[in-house]
C-alpha cells in the first residue's frame, strides 16, 4: 500500500487511513446524496480509488462503478498525442497504475461494489442496464466534451443524477447567473473546461437534466498526500487566474457544488 499513489483519503477497517491527494471525508454531508439508499441500484462514474462508491454502498446501495483502466484512454489534449509531446507524456504516465488503489481498498473493506472498465462517453443502457441513481463526481472538468459525456450518463438514469463538481470560485461569485468556463486544454494535464457554478448548471441542462436542488458552494480539503505549497509556489501561482484559483484552494479547499438533477421526460 505504501507504493500506491492515493487520490482519495479512505478509512480502512484496519485503522489505516490512505494518504490521499484530496480528503472528502468531512464533506460527505454537503452533497445531495440521499441519507439512505437501501435497495437502490446506483452507478458511480469515474470512481478512481472508490471513495464515493464505498460511501454509496455504506448507505445501502448496490453499486456499480465505471472507470477507464488505462491512462492513455483519458481525454488528453490532441497536442499531447503528437511527436515529442506524445513520448514525454507516455514517459510521465508510465508510473501511473489506474485501479490499484481501488482494488486494495475494495479488498480491505470487503466491499461488494462491482466495477466495469468503460469510458463515460461509451455508457450504454443496453450493456450496463439502468440505475435508480447516478453519481458523477468531479469529472466534468477532465472531459473535452462534458455535455456528450453527461448525456451518455443520463441515458442510464431511471432516477436522480447527482453531480458533485469542481467549480471556479471567483467566476462563480462574479458571474452567478452567466454560465462561464475557463478553457484549459492546452497544458500537459487532462483539464478542459473549468466551469463556474452557472456553467455546471448549464452543462446539466444541455445534457437533458433539470436541476432540482443545489448544495451551495463547499470546499474539499487537500489530503495528506498532497504536496504542501511553498512560498515559491504561491509567488508562481498568483499572476494567473488559474494559479489564483489554486492558491485559494490551498487556503479554503477545492471549490465544489453538488446538484441534484432529474432527467427531462
Amino acid at each position: 500500500m505504501a507504493g500506491t499513489s492515493w487520490y482519495h483519503t479512505i478509512d480502512l477497517p484496519s485503522g489505516v487511513t490512505t494518504p490521499g491527494t484530496v480528503d472528502c471525508r468531512g464533506i460527505v454531508g454537503r452533497t445531495m446524496i440521499p441519507e439512505r439508499l437501501d435497495g437502490m441500484r446506483v452507478l458511480d462514474i469515474g470512481t478512481w480509488d472508490g471513495f464515493w462508491a464505498f460511501e454509496l454502498e455504506r448507505r445501502g446501495a448496490e453499486v456499480l462503478t465505471v472507470d477507464v483502466d488505462d491512462v492513455d484512454l483519458l481525454d488528453w489534449p490532441p497536442r499531447t498525442r503528437l511527436g515529442d509531446a506524445d513520448a514525454a507524456r507516455r514517459e510521465r504516465m508510465a508510473v501511473v497504475r489506474l485501479g490499484e488503489g481501488f482494488s486494495i481498498a475494495h479488498a480491505a473493506i470487503g466491499s461488494s461494489v462491482r466495477s466495469a472498465k468503460v469510458s463515460i462517453y461509451d455508457l450504454d443502457p443496453h450493456l450496463l442496464g439502468r440505475f435508480d441513481l447516478v453519481f458523477v463526481g468531479s469529472i466534468l472538468v477532465h472531459l473535452r466534451d462534458p455535455v456528450r459525456a453527461l448525456a451518455a450518463a443520463v441515458s442510464l438514469a431511471d432516477g436522480p443524477v447527482i453531480l458533485n463538481e469542481s467549480i471556479e470560485l471567483v467566476s462563480s461569485l462574479l458571474s452567478p447567473r452567466t454560465p462561464r468556463a475557463r478553457f484549459a486544454g492546452d497544458g500537459d494535464l487532462v483539464l478542459w473546461w473549468h466551469s463556474n457554478l452557472a456553467g455546471v448548471r448549464q452543462i446539466a441542462r444541455s445534457a437533458g437534466l433539470d436541476v432540482e436542488r443545489e448544495s451551495g458552494i463547499f470546499f474539499i480539503p487537500w489530503g495528506e498526500g498532497y504536496e504542501q505549497p511553498t512560498l515559491g509556489k504561491l509567488a508562481h501561482a498568483l499572476p494567473t487566474v488559474q494559479g489564483r484559483e489554486l492558491a485559494l484552494s490551498w487556503g479554503l479547499g477545492i471549490a465544489h457544488a453538488s446538484l441534484r438533477c432529474e432527467p427531462v421526460r
Binding site: 455535455v147 452567466t178 454560465p179 462561464r180 468556463a181 475557463r182 478553457f183 484549459a184 486544454g185 492546452d186 473546461w193 466551469s195 456553467g199 448549464q202 452543462i203 441542462r205 444541455s206 494567473t240 487566474v241 488559474q242
Partner: peptide
C-alpha cells in the same frame, strides 16, 4: 477584460450554439 485567460460562455440549451469563446 481577460486578454490572457481563455474563457468561454456556454449556451447549448435551445440552439446549435455552444462555447462562445
Amino acid at each position: 477584460v481577460s486578454p490572457r485567460t481563455a474563457r468561454a460562455r456556454l449556451e447549448g440549451d435551445t440552439a446549435v450554439r455552444w462555447w462562445q469563446p
